[in-house]
Design a protein around this nucleic acid. Structure first.
Lengths: 320, 320
DNA sequence: ATAAAGTATGAAACGCGTTTCAGCGCAAGA
DNA sequence: TCTTGCGCTGAAACGCGTTTCATACTTTAT
């Protein structure tokens, strides 16, 4: 297949000129350009991008760190990122972590080793301090509130969003409220926990640990919640669930168990996934695609660090 | 940060020796090794992977071509691929096509330009002939039957699977059967079409074009099918739908419309997605994760081209 | 007519890790 | 004693595109 020097030889020009033709730089005479193009064609030449990357010191590849690929929450963000990346001719490498810190470290290593130009972290388990050490190697965008550590970020105010949910429930007469999260730790889960405690103390209810369901991300987890709820000695009358999938799982399991929604149990989900529309689940919309798009665009704001807050919105349907 | 030559200078050894230390090659004396390690540490040295890629002529990155990221069918395959890739220290670049041929061509270009070592095509719109031209640049694995063009592939026999579905429906007394597909064209859709025509002629029923719903991939599409079915002059009594999401959308919309399932309309989905379990949808299980894992492993079978057929399985639940 | 600006072109250096090959010293087998 | 062969090391070539700098010829502006 040959390289750029072979082309130069064949076309009787310098490699510089070949490079200019390849990159559409000006200042190449028509004849030389033609000769180069012919040589490229004759030798069926194609760039070796690894040489380009080495030479330029960048790859136009960004890494997206996400715990699970096959979960609509993350794949919605990913799709948003991909959409914008494509427009700017960036490629995407996915790094699935399963919340293993090792995997996050590997992602950072890829950045340091110049394999990636930037990193978007959709969710993490490694402390921000670890990330700080790698800032010098490329932009790192956080899809969570990371203001204090001075990272560019795109996030939803989960504290407020959760608060809105709680308010809606109390306005509908609920005082005994539980909730579910994906992990017990994590920025968003923590925000929800704080909001929960604060709100309950405001309405003078005691927060109950047994009404907090953690490790809930999927439909299956939602089903589990329904069954566990059913076994509870004292039952909350309302649940705010991790996301719409969990809500869907919980609601449909409740139907099977003969638990009336929202009669016996009110439910609020998060995301406004199409399943929430289908099942008429009251939910708090999270514009995840938008989040992804914004996250990518932060990368191009090469100099400044900035935070973007993404709006959420309560969508009242029939489960409260 | 310095490069390998700086390390060599500082440690007073040759670059070869540094390279040996970096790659854990034998035949380096303990003292030199130590000196190198110290130098690496002092200079805070880290490899530039782009140089490695250029030098080695490979990147350990594979490309996964998929029409949509945020669709469980494809993200299940992707997760399977990612799982296996991780074990072999391969990275994954995703190339979302939206079935645009241009995007598929770009993916092939990445392979040719040595940015990717191999390609896994989960679904395509570009003819196989185009792919054939790029075989010489790296392995290309097809997640569909591609025997005749001599590609390594992992696939489900959609003809048979569909046939099983049809058989199950007729055994349950149905003769007026319609179905849905994602696209009108495409290997799998075609297999279903052939199976449909052949089967109906066997049971001496005329296939009806108006009972074939195309462009159906999501829950929303399922809802549409329910509404369209309801408007039909003459209605099929059973539908085999693209996947479980479409089935779920259709079923839940039918509930709203007061259409009894399976009384008035029987439904079979594909995939055995957790939603099908939740909604008791009769479905044909497609082990997509397994498919992805096998697809990746085909890459490592560096020499031989082989086809792997993935099993499917009818799961009888309550919608037939 | 002369300085300034634009067009065109190429040599050489740069980015950087891997690998081949040659060579030397020393120990084991013939 | 002589031949293998293993352990260890480094010079140099290899993979290859980009970019800087110097140079020289045309035009255009003054």
């Amino acid at each position: 297949m040959g390289n750029i020097r072979d082309i130069a030889k064949l076309a009787k020009v310098s490699v510089t000129t070949v490079s200019r033709v390849l990159n559409n730089h000006p200042y190449v005479s028509a004849e030389k350009k033609e000769a180069v193009i012919k040589a490229i064609d004759d030798l069926n030449y194609h760039k070796n991008m690894n040489a380009v990357h080495l030479s330029k010191g960048k790859t136009n590849i960004i890494g997206v760190v996400l715990p699970f690929i096959n979960h609509p929450y993350f794949s919605s963000i990913l799709e948003g990122i991909a959409l914008e990346a494509q427009l700017q001719h960036y490629k995407i490498m996915i790094i699935q972590t399963n919340y293993k810190q090792e995997k996050e470290k590997e992602a950072l290593e890829l950045l340091r080793q110049k394999q990636l130009d930037a990193l978007i972290i959709t969710s993490r388990s490694l402390p921000l301090e670890n990330y700080s050490l790698f800032k010098e190697y490329g932009k790192i965008i956080m899809c969570m509130n990371a203001m204090d550590n001075d990272f560019s970020s795109v996030f939803i105010n989960h504290f407020e969003a959760f608060h809105i949910g709680l308010t809606h429930l109390t306005e509908s007469g609920h005082r005994k409220i539980g909730y579910a999260v994906g992990r017990r730790v994590g920025t968003n889960s923590h925000a929800r926990y704080i909001a929960y405690k604060e709100f309950l103390s405001q309405i003078e209810e005691k927060p109950r640990e047994e009404w907090i369901f953690s490790g809930c991300l999927t439909i299956e987890d939602g089903k589990r919640i329904a069954r566990e709820w059913n076994q509870l000695e004292e039952k909350p009358t309302a649940l705010i669930l991790t996301n719409d999938l969990v809500a869907a799982g919980c609601i449909l399991e409740c139907r099977k168990l003969g638990i009336s929604i929202p009669g016996e149990l009110a439910i609020i989900g998060f995301e406004n996934h199409e399943i929430s529309d289908l099942l008429d689940i009251t939910t708090i919309e999270l514009p995840l695609g938008l989040m992804g798009r914004n996250a990518f665009n932060q990368i191009l704001q090469s100099n400044k660090v900035q935070q973007i807050e993404i709006p959420y919105r309560l969508i009242k349907r029939k489960t409260v």
